[in-house]
Write a protein that binds this DNA or RNA. Structure first.
Length: 342
DNA sequence: TACACGTGGTC
DNA sequence: TGACCAAGTGT
Protein backbone atom coordinates (compact mmCIF):
# COMPACT_ATOMS: atom_id res chain seq x y z
CA UNK A 1 0.00 0.00 0.00
CA UNK A 2 2.75 2.45 0.96
CA UNK A 3 4.57 2.56 -2.33
CA UNK A 4 1.48 2.22 -4.48
CA UNK A 5 -0.29 5.20 -2.88
CA UNK A 6 2.85 7.33 -2.79
CA UNK A 7 3.72 6.55 -6.42
CA UNK A 8 0.24 7.45 -7.62
CA UNK A 9 0.30 10.72 -5.71
CA UNK A 10 3.82 11.72 -6.75
CA UNK A 11 3.09 10.96 -10.40
CA UNK A 12 0.02 13.17 -10.15
CA UNK A 13 2.07 15.91 -8.46
CA UNK A 14 4.67 15.80 -11.23
CA UNK A 15 1.92 16.76 -13.64
CA UNK A 16 -0.22 19.10 -11.52
CA UNK A 17 1.93 20.83 -8.89
CA UNK A 18 0.96 24.45 -8.40
CA UNK A 19 3.57 27.09 -9.16
CA UNK A 20 3.89 29.08 -5.93
CA UNK A 21 6.45 31.80 -5.12
CA UNK A 22 7.99 29.89 -2.21
CA UNK A 23 8.48 26.65 -4.10
CA UNK A 24 11.86 25.75 -5.61
CA UNK A 25 12.48 27.20 -9.05
CA UNK A 26 12.66 24.68 -11.90
CA UNK A 27 16.12 23.17 -11.85
CA UNK A 28 16.82 24.15 -8.24
CA UNK A 29 17.25 21.12 -5.99
CA UNK A 30 15.60 22.55 -2.88
CA UNK A 31 13.78 25.75 -1.94
CA UNK A 32 15.34 28.39 0.32
CA UNK A 33 14.62 27.36 3.95
CA UNK A 34 13.86 31.00 4.77
CA UNK A 35 11.18 31.05 2.08
CA UNK A 36 9.74 27.75 3.29
CA UNK A 37 9.64 28.91 6.90
CA UNK A 38 8.13 32.33 6.10
CA UNK A 39 5.49 30.88 3.79
CA UNK A 40 4.53 28.09 6.18
CA UNK A 41 4.02 30.52 9.04
CA UNK A 42 1.99 32.85 6.83
CA UNK A 43 -0.08 29.92 5.59
CA UNK A 44 -1.17 28.87 9.09
CA UNK A 45 -4.98 29.09 8.90
CA UNK A 46 -4.60 31.45 5.96
CA UNK A 47 -5.37 31.00 2.27
CA UNK A 48 -2.70 30.89 -0.43
CA UNK A 49 -4.31 33.86 -2.18
CA UNK A 50 -4.09 36.00 0.96
CA UNK A 51 -0.48 35.00 1.62
CA UNK A 52 1.11 35.62 -1.79
CA UNK A 53 1.24 39.46 -1.65
CA UNK A 54 2.52 39.40 1.94
CA UNK A 55 5.17 36.83 1.04
CA UNK A 56 6.35 39.02 -1.84
CA UNK A 57 6.39 42.11 0.37
CA UNK A 58 8.34 40.40 3.15
CA UNK A 59 10.94 38.75 0.91
CA UNK A 60 11.52 42.00 -0.97
CA UNK A 61 11.93 44.03 2.18
CA UNK A 62 13.73 41.37 4.25
CA UNK A 63 15.43 38.99 1.78
CA UNK A 64 16.97 36.67 4.36
CA UNK A 65 16.89 35.65 8.01
CA UNK A 66 19.60 38.15 8.97
CA UNK A 67 17.62 41.04 7.50
CA UNK A 68 14.47 39.99 9.31
CA UNK A 69 16.38 39.51 12.56
CA UNK A 70 17.71 43.05 12.28
CA UNK A 71 14.28 44.59 11.62
CA UNK A 72 12.52 46.55 14.38
CA UNK A 73 9.67 44.43 15.68
CA UNK A 74 7.06 47.14 15.20
CA UNK A 75 7.94 47.45 11.51
CA UNK A 76 7.38 43.73 11.06
CA UNK A 77 4.08 43.94 12.96
CA UNK A 78 2.95 46.82 10.73
CA UNK A 79 3.92 44.89 7.60
CA UNK A 80 1.87 41.94 8.87
CA UNK A 81 -1.22 44.12 9.43
CA UNK A 82 -4.27 42.67 7.71
CA UNK A 83 -3.02 39.08 7.63
CA UNK A 84 -4.34 38.18 11.09
CA UNK A 85 -3.12 36.03 13.99
CA UNK A 86 -0.59 38.66 14.96
CA UNK A 87 1.31 36.51 17.45
CA UNK A 88 2.74 34.88 14.33
CA UNK A 89 4.57 38.10 13.43
CA UNK A 90 5.97 38.53 16.93
CA UNK A 91 7.16 34.92 16.98
CA UNK A 92 8.61 35.34 13.51
CA UNK A 93 10.93 38.10 14.71
CA UNK A 94 11.83 36.16 17.83
CA UNK A 95 12.66 33.05 15.78
CA UNK A 96 14.65 35.07 13.23
CA UNK A 97 16.82 36.46 16.03
CA UNK A 98 17.37 32.98 17.49
CA UNK A 99 18.29 31.63 14.06
CA UNK A 100 20.61 34.54 13.42
CA UNK A 101 22.35 33.92 16.74
CA UNK A 102 22.63 30.16 16.24
CA UNK A 103 23.96 30.44 12.70
CA UNK A 104 21.02 29.20 10.64
CA UNK A 105 18.24 26.69 10.39
CA UNK A 106 18.33 23.35 12.17
CA UNK A 107 17.45 20.58 9.74
CA UNK A 108 15.58 18.14 11.97
CA UNK A 109 11.93 18.24 12.91
CA UNK A 110 12.71 18.03 16.63
CA UNK A 111 15.05 21.05 16.56
CA UNK A 112 12.74 23.09 14.35
CA UNK A 113 9.88 22.37 16.76
CA UNK A 114 11.68 24.38 19.47
CA UNK A 115 11.47 27.65 17.53
CA UNK A 116 8.66 30.00 18.56
CA UNK A 117 5.66 29.76 16.27
CA UNK A 118 6.57 26.32 14.96
CA UNK A 119 4.16 23.62 16.09
CA UNK A 120 3.88 20.02 14.99
CA UNK A 121 2.64 20.86 11.53
CA UNK A 122 5.09 23.61 10.62
CA UNK A 123 8.17 21.85 12.00
CA UNK A 124 7.30 18.74 10.00
CA UNK A 125 6.56 20.78 6.87
CA UNK A 126 9.90 22.62 6.97
CA UNK A 127 11.85 19.44 7.71
CA UNK A 128 10.23 17.73 4.73
CA UNK A 129 10.10 20.59 2.21
CA UNK A 130 13.36 22.41 2.94
CA UNK A 131 15.52 19.48 4.08
CA UNK A 132 13.98 16.33 2.52
CA UNK A 133 13.45 14.70 5.91
CA UNK A 134 10.70 12.13 6.12
CA UNK A 135 8.03 13.63 8.40
CA UNK A 136 4.31 13.31 9.05
CA UNK A 137 3.01 16.62 7.75
CA UNK A 138 -0.57 16.93 8.98
CA UNK A 139 -2.65 19.98 8.21
CA UNK A 140 -6.39 20.30 7.56
CA UNK A 141 -5.93 19.17 3.94
CA UNK A 142 -4.08 16.04 5.00
CA UNK A 143 -6.62 15.26 7.71
CA UNK A 144 -9.39 15.43 5.15
CA UNK A 145 -7.58 13.43 2.46
CA UNK A 146 -6.49 10.70 4.87
CA UNK A 147 -9.88 10.48 6.59
CA UNK A 148 -11.37 9.83 3.15
CA UNK A 149 -8.68 7.52 1.77
CA UNK A 150 -9.00 5.28 4.84
CA UNK A 151 -12.68 6.00 5.60
CA UNK A 152 -11.92 7.08 9.16
CA UNK A 153 -15.30 7.62 10.80
CA UNK A 154 -14.14 8.93 14.17
CA UNK A 155 -14.89 12.67 14.50
CA UNK A 156 -12.15 15.31 14.62
CA UNK A 157 -10.32 16.33 16.68
CA UNK A 158 -10.35 12.88 18.30
CA UNK A 159 -9.37 11.23 15.03
CA UNK A 160 -6.00 12.99 14.84
CA UNK A 161 -4.10 10.03 16.26
CA UNK A 162 -5.69 7.57 13.84
CA UNK A 163 -5.03 9.94 10.95
CA UNK A 164 -1.33 10.23 11.82
CA UNK A 165 -1.06 6.45 12.03
CA UNK A 166 -2.75 6.02 8.65
CA UNK A 167 -0.57 8.70 7.07
CA UNK A 168 2.51 6.95 8.44
CA UNK A 169 1.61 3.82 6.44
CA UNK A 170 1.70 5.65 3.09
CA UNK A 171 4.50 8.20 3.69
CA UNK A 172 7.54 7.25 1.57
CA UNK A 173 11.19 7.63 2.50
CA UNK A 174 11.96 9.47 -0.73
CA UNK A 175 10.76 12.85 -2.02
CA UNK A 176 9.62 13.97 1.41
CA UNK A 177 8.95 17.56 0.38
CA UNK A 178 7.10 16.68 -2.79
CA UNK A 179 4.96 14.14 -0.95
CA UNK A 180 3.92 16.65 1.71
CA UNK A 181 3.10 19.33 -0.83
CA UNK A 182 1.34 16.84 -3.07
CA UNK A 183 -0.95 15.89 -0.18
CA UNK A 184 -1.83 19.54 0.37
CA UNK A 185 -2.28 20.25 -3.33
CA UNK A 186 -4.58 17.26 -3.62
CA UNK A 187 -6.61 18.49 -0.65
CA UNK A 188 -6.90 22.03 -1.94
CA UNK A 189 -7.57 21.27 -5.59
CA UNK A 190 -9.47 17.94 -5.81
CA UNK A 191 -10.30 16.50 -2.40
CA UNK A 192 -11.93 19.67 -1.07
CA UNK A 193 -14.08 20.12 2.01
CA UNK A 194 -17.39 20.52 0.23
CA UNK A 195 -16.54 19.00 -3.11
CA UNK A 196 -14.54 15.94 -4.15
CA UNK A 197 -13.44 15.60 -7.79
CA UNK A 198 -12.94 11.86 -7.56
CA UNK A 199 -12.82 11.30 -11.32
CA UNK A 200 -9.64 13.36 -11.50
CA UNK A 201 -8.07 11.90 -8.35
CA UNK A 202 -4.97 9.70 -8.55
CA UNK A 203 -6.38 7.66 -5.65
CA UNK A 204 -9.83 7.02 -7.10
CA UNK A 205 -9.16 3.28 -7.33
CA UNK A 206 -7.89 2.90 -3.75
CA UNK A 207 -10.03 5.40 -1.80
CA UNK A 208 -12.25 3.79 0.83
CA UNK A 209 -14.60 6.78 1.12
CA UNK A 210 -15.16 6.83 -2.63
CA UNK A 211 -15.79 3.09 -2.54
CA UNK A 212 -18.38 3.71 0.20
CA UNK A 213 -20.08 6.27 -2.02
CA UNK A 214 -20.06 9.57 -0.09
CA UNK A 215 -16.52 10.93 0.36
CA UNK A 216 -17.62 14.49 1.14
CA UNK A 217 -19.23 13.27 4.37
CA UNK A 218 -15.73 12.76 5.81
CA UNK A 219 -14.07 13.82 7.95
CA UNK A 220 -16.76 14.02 10.62
CA UNK A 221 -16.30 17.06 12.85
CA UNK A 222 -17.48 17.85 16.36
CA UNK A 223 -20.17 20.52 16.58
CA UNK A 224 -18.95 24.06 17.23
CA UNK A 225 -20.07 26.45 19.93
CA UNK A 226 -22.20 29.44 19.01
CA UNK A 227 -20.37 32.77 18.80
CA UNK A 228 -21.47 35.52 21.19
CA UNK A 229 -21.90 39.09 19.98
CA UNK A 230 -20.06 41.78 21.94
CA UNK A 231 -20.48 45.54 21.89
CA UNK A 232 -17.77 48.13 22.30
CA UNK A 233 -16.57 51.58 21.32
CA UNK A 234 -13.49 52.91 19.57
CA UNK A 235 -12.54 56.57 19.94
CA UNK A 236 -11.48 58.90 17.14
CA UNK A 237 -9.49 61.77 18.59
CA UNK A 238 -8.13 64.23 16.07
CA UNK A 239 -5.89 67.24 16.48
CA UNK A 240 -3.83 69.26 14.00
CA UNK A 241 -4.15 66.76 11.16
CA UNK A 242 -3.27 63.76 13.30
CA UNK A 243 -5.20 61.04 15.08
CA UNK A 244 -4.42 59.53 18.49
CA UNK A 245 -3.22 55.92 18.20
CA UNK A 246 -2.24 53.53 20.96
CA UNK A 247 -0.28 50.30 20.97
CA UNK A 248 -2.22 47.30 22.21
CA UNK A 249 -0.72 45.03 24.89
CA UNK A 250 1.61 42.37 23.57
CA UNK A 251 -0.67 39.48 24.43
CA UNK A 252 -4.33 38.95 23.68
CA UNK A 253 -6.53 40.28 20.89
CA UNK A 254 -4.59 42.09 18.16
CA UNK A 255 -1.61 41.98 20.50
CA UNK A 256 1.16 44.47 19.86
CA UNK A 257 -0.70 46.19 17.05
CA UNK A 258 -1.35 49.92 16.67
CA UNK A 259 -5.01 50.74 17.18
CA UNK A 260 -7.57 53.38 17.99
CA UNK A 261 -8.16 53.64 21.74
CA UNK A 262 -11.20 51.62 22.79
CA UNK A 263 -13.26 50.87 25.86
CA UNK A 264 -11.91 47.40 26.66
CA UNK A 265 -14.33 45.19 24.74
CA UNK A 266 -13.22 41.58 24.45
CA UNK A 267 -14.40 38.08 23.63
CA UNK A 268 -15.52 37.80 27.25
CA UNK A 269 -17.65 40.91 27.48
CA UNK A 270 -18.77 44.33 26.29
CA UNK A 271 -16.68 47.47 26.61
CA UNK A 272 -17.10 49.93 29.46
CA UNK A 273 -18.01 52.91 27.30
CA UNK A 274 -15.40 55.02 29.13
CA UNK A 275 -13.48 57.40 26.84
CA UNK A 276 -9.75 58.18 27.19
CA UNK A 277 -10.46 61.91 27.33
CA UNK A 278 -13.38 63.94 28.63
CA UNK A 279 -15.40 66.17 26.39
CA UNK A 280 -18.15 66.15 23.82
CA UNK A 281 -18.48 63.06 21.63
CA UNK A 282 -20.63 62.37 18.63
CA UNK A 283 -21.58 59.03 17.13
CA UNK A 284 -19.54 58.16 14.05
CA UNK A 285 -21.25 54.97 12.95
CA UNK A 286 -20.78 51.28 13.71
CA UNK A 287 -18.21 48.75 12.48
CA UNK A 288 -19.32 45.13 12.43
CA UNK A 289 -16.52 42.60 12.48
CA UNK A 290 -16.44 38.86 13.12
CA UNK A 291 -13.52 37.18 14.81
CA UNK A 292 -13.01 33.43 15.08
CA UNK A 293 -14.86 33.16 18.37
CA UNK A 294 -17.14 36.21 18.63
CA UNK A 295 -18.87 38.95 16.70
CA UNK A 296 -18.19 42.58 17.51
CA UNK A 297 -20.37 45.64 16.99
CA UNK A 298 -17.98 48.47 17.62
CA UNK A 299 -19.40 51.97 17.71
CA UNK A 300 -17.11 54.79 16.65
CA UNK A 301 -17.17 57.84 18.94
CA UNK A 302 -15.68 61.00 17.47
CA UNK A 303 -14.32 63.69 19.76
CA UNK A 304 -16.10 66.92 19.02
CA UNK A 305 -14.02 69.30 21.13
CA UNK A 306 -10.89 71.32 20.40
CA UNK A 307 -7.28 70.29 21.16
CA UNK A 308 -8.02 67.18 23.21
CA UNK A 309 -5.29 65.73 25.45
CA UNK A 310 -5.87 61.99 25.90
CA UNK A 311 -4.75 60.14 29.02
CA UNK A 312 -2.20 57.34 28.83
CA UNK A 313 0.42 56.31 26.28
CA UNK A 314 -0.10 56.89 22.59
CA UNK A 315 1.05 58.94 19.66
CA UNK A 316 -0.34 61.52 17.27
CA UNK A 317 -0.28 59.82 13.89
CA UNK A 318 -0.45 62.06 10.78
CA UNK A 319 -3.64 61.42 8.85
CA UNK A 320 -1.85 61.58 5.51
CA UNK A 321 0.30 58.61 6.55
CA UNK A 322 -2.44 56.54 8.19
CA UNK A 323 -1.97 53.68 5.71
CA UNK A 324 1.53 53.20 7.14
CA UNK A 325 0.29 52.78 10.70
CA UNK A 326 -0.30 49.05 10.27
CA UNK A 327 -3.81 49.05 11.70
CA UNK A 328 -5.44 45.62 11.90
CA UNK A 329 -8.52 45.32 9.72
CA UNK A 330 -11.06 46.12 12.45
CA UNK A 331 -9.45 49.51 13.14
CA UNK A 332 -8.68 50.15 9.49
CA UNK A 333 -12.45 49.86 8.90
CA UNK A 334 -13.16 52.26 11.76
CA UNK A 335 -10.60 54.75 10.45
CA UNK A 336 -12.06 54.55 6.95
CA UNK A 337 -15.49 55.28 8.42
CA UNK A 338 -14.20 58.29 10.34
CA UNK A 339 -12.36 59.70 7.33
CA UNK A 340 -15.30 59.16 4.99
CA UNK A 341 -17.59 61.43 6.97
CA UNK A 342 -15.19 64.26 7.72
C1' DT B 1 -8.65 19.25 26.47
C1' DA B 2 -10.65 23.21 25.04
C1' DC B 3 -10.37 27.67 24.07
C1' DA B 4 -8.18 32.13 22.35
C1' DC B 5 -6.51 33.91 18.40
C1' DG B 6 -7.89 37.39 12.32
C1' DT B 7 -9.27 37.67 8.03
C1' DG B 8 -11.56 37.18 3.61
C1' DG B 9 -13.87 34.06 0.43
C1' DT B 10 -17.70 30.87 -0.40
C1' DC B 11 -22.35 29.08 -0.64
C1' DT C 1 -26.52 36.19 5.46
C1' DG C 2 -24.56 33.59 8.74
C1' DA C 3 -21.78 29.58 9.13
C1' DC C 4 -18.08 27.24 7.41
C1' DC C 5 -13.56 27.08 5.80
C1' DA C 6 -8.21 27.98 5.07
C1' DA C 7 -0.65 25.06 4.76
C1' DG C 8 -2.20 25.84 13.28
C1' DT C 9 0.02 27.48 17.67
C1' DG C 10 0.10 28.62 22.50
C1' DT C 11 -1.69 28.01 26.91
Amino acid sequence: MRDRAADLLLDWYDRHARDLPWRARPGAPLPDPYHVWLSEVMLQQTTVAAVIPYFEKFTTRWPDVAALAAAPEDEVMAAWAGLGYYSRARNLVKAARELSRSGGFPTTEAELRKLPGLGDYTAAAIAAIAFERRALVVDANVERVIARLFAIEEPLPGAKKAIRAALDTITPERRAGDFAQAMMDLGSSLCRARDAQCLLCPWQAICAAREAGDPVRLPVKAAKKAKPTRAGTAFWIERDGAVWLVQRPGKGMLGGMRALPDDGWSARGDGSGVAPVAGAWRAGGVVRHSFTHFHLEMGLAVHAGAKPVPAGDGEWWPLDRLDEAGLPTLFAKAAALALAER
